[in-house]
Computed example of a mutant assay.
Amino acid sequence: MDMNNSFPISVEDFRHFAKKRLPNFLFDYIDGGSNDERTMAANIADFEDYCLKQQVMSDVGSVNTSTELCGQTASMPLALAPVGMAGMMARRGEVQAAKAAKAAGVPFTCSTVGVCSVEEIKQASTSIPWFQLYMLRDRDVVLQILERAKLAGCNTLIFTVDLAVAGMRHRDYRNGMLAEGLKAKWSMFSQLATRPRWLMDVGCLGGPHAIGNLSDVVDNPNSMAAFKAFIDSQFDPSVTWKDITWLRSVWDGKLIIKGVLEVDDARQAVDAGADGVVVSNHGGRQLDGVASSISKLPAVVDALDKQIDVFMDGGVRSGIDVVKAVALGAKGVLIGRPWVWAMAARQEAGITALLTRFQQEIEVAMALMGVNRIAELNADLIDH
């Protein structure tokens, strides 16, 4: 197919267009994983191990994909995952994504390290996002950020726990994003020069290029180097489940722990007071060589036995993948790379088209499986 003369339909289509529009270092930042990227690949490939069961001659005249996620009605069991630096992929990218999510009736998650602040997202989209946070060394900064989220009306906190140290993302070193010195700077400059449309849309018109939610805690809010130095200094490898218990004591909204793969960790999240967990390996961007999220999902679901909600992310590339995850026990899924690729390719309209396609795929799959409601999806409808 000649992609130059077509409109993107699938996630892979959007990825193709995003690669053509973004400077290489930004595309690789979104597209890449850690080390040899085996876990990232397994996240996608392992969905093939689970087959849907087709059931015919059922009355499927009233298929409804809606559900409830963290106490709010959603048009389908899907939310937009937090993605750092998304505002560098399109002009005020987090705002565009929040608007598209609201129009589609699904939650949007604001990243701590996004370009747009939670206040900007709320004002521009007239919706209240979920909020994502890491445990920082400076607990006063954690409290300060939580207060910002509360004042913006956020009630659901997605807390990422699989980032005690940063994974080894080789692509980011190869293209100069994490390397230092004149050669690295020249490499990035040459990549920018090949993308004049991005330079105008984001580079010139998309400012301020800062980390909005950290603007009050970084000495020079207009310096990306200052932000990077601050974030690097705030990784805290000493975090334990006791810190999550503390977090639960200072956050009175929904608390979802993101980055759990093993049953024992999922149980620890329950004991710490979490309302849910996200079965996740950080999209294959942290520890390469661990199992895929979808392969770990059933054991976590069985172990928690509906004590709290279980979500998953990693490798979801279609509505059919969403149906598989929900049938295996997930309350819903989070998608990251797909919405960023769609936005980079076609702005807010791209995300809208992507979410429309996901919902259509979920609806068609449910009808051909002989079910009308999300609650009817279960493991009996999966061959493995």
Score class of each variant (00 low, 15 high):
Ser6Gln: 12
Glu12Leu: 14
Phe14His: 08
Phe14Gln: 05
His16Gly: 05
Lys19Asp: 12
Lys20Cys: 12
Arg21Leu: 10
Phe25Cys: 07
Phe47His: 06
Phe47Asp: 02
Asp49Lys: 10
Lys53Thr: 08
Lys53Ala: 05
Met57Gly: 04
Val60Ala: 04
Ser62Trp: 15
Thr65Leu: 07
Leu69Lys: 00
Pro77Ser: 03
Leu80Pro: 01
Ala86Thr: 14
Ala90Gln: 14
Gln96Ser: 10
Cys110Phe: 07
Thr112Lys: 02
Gly114Leu: 09
Val118Thr: 09
Ala124Thr: 02
Tyr134Trp: 10
Tyr134Leu: 03
Arg139Leu: 04
Asp140Trp: 15
Val142His: 12
Gln144Val: 00
Ala149Trp: 13
Cys154Thr: 12
Cys154Ile: 11
Thr156Ala: 01
Val161Ile: 09
Ala164Phe: 15
Arg169Gln: 05
His170Cys: 06
Asn175Ser: 02
Leu178Gly: 06
Leu182Tyr: 15
Gln191Tyr: 13
Ala193Arg: 10
Arg195Tyr: 12
Pro208Asp: 06
Ala210Ser: 14
Ile211Asn: 06
Asn213His: 06
Asp216Phe: 13
Asn220Asp: 15
Ala225Ser: 09
Ser233Val: 13
Phe235Trp: 13
Val239Glu: 07
Thr240Arg: 02
Trp241His: 02
Asp243Gly: 01
Trp246Ser: 00
Ser249Arg: 01
Trp251Asp: 04
Gly253Ile: 14
Leu261Met: 12
Leu261Ala: 09
Glu262Trp: 15
Ala266Arg: 02
Arg267Thr: 02
Ala272Gly: 02
Asp275Met: 07
Gly276Trp: 11
Val279Trp: 06
Gly284Tyr: 14
Arg285Gly: 05
Gln286Arg: 07
Leu287Thr: 15
Ser293Ala: 15
Ser293Trp: 14
Ser293Val: 10
Lys296Pro: 01
Pro298His: 11
Val300Tyr: 08
Leu304Asn: 01
Asp305Glu: 05
Ile308Gln: 02
Val310Thr: 00
Arg317Thr: 00
Asp321Ala: 01
Ala327Arg: 07
Leu328Cys: 00
Leu334Gly: 01
Trp339Thr: 08
Val340Glu: 06
Glu348Tyr: 02
Glu348Met: 07
Glu348Val: 02
Gly350Asp: 13
Ala353Tyr: 13
Ala353Leu: 14
Gln359Thr: 13
Glu361Asp: 02
Met366Pro: 10
Leu368Ala: 03
Asn372Trp: 08
Ala375Lys: 04
Asp380Arg: 08
Leu381Ile: 04
